[in-house]
């Protein structure tokens, strides 16, 4: 957790860095944590693209009207 919190030099979702307050396109990546002979090893990977159907739904920009919240 601490390694990741340090490594991710951006703010995204629940992770907020007071020294990097904005999201960075470069960090559109997942951090992976694996045990190795030298201790914990961190690598990154880029998430897959959504399917065409879900991409269409994303592009349609549906959103909640907050004032309807119960």
């Amino acid at each position: 957790m601490l390694r990741g919190a340090r490594e991710r030099r951006e703010s995204r979702g629940a992770h907020f860095r007071t020294d990097f307050e904005d999201a960075s396109e470069e960090w559109h990546r997942n951090l992976l944590y694996e045990r190795s002979f030298d201790g914990m090893e961190l690598t990154t990977k880029t998430p897959d693209e959504p399917s065409a159907e879900v991409q269409d739904a994303l592009d349609a920009g549906y959103e909640l009207d907050y004032h309807q919240l119960e």
Partner: peptide
């Protein structure tokens, strides 16, 4: 599909889409 899109938006596109 819209449920998935909402989930990806809230996850700031780091989710595994499949």
């Amino acid at each position: 599909a819209i449920h998935a899109a909402d989930t990806l938006n809230e996850g700031h596109m780091l989710n595994d889409p499949a």
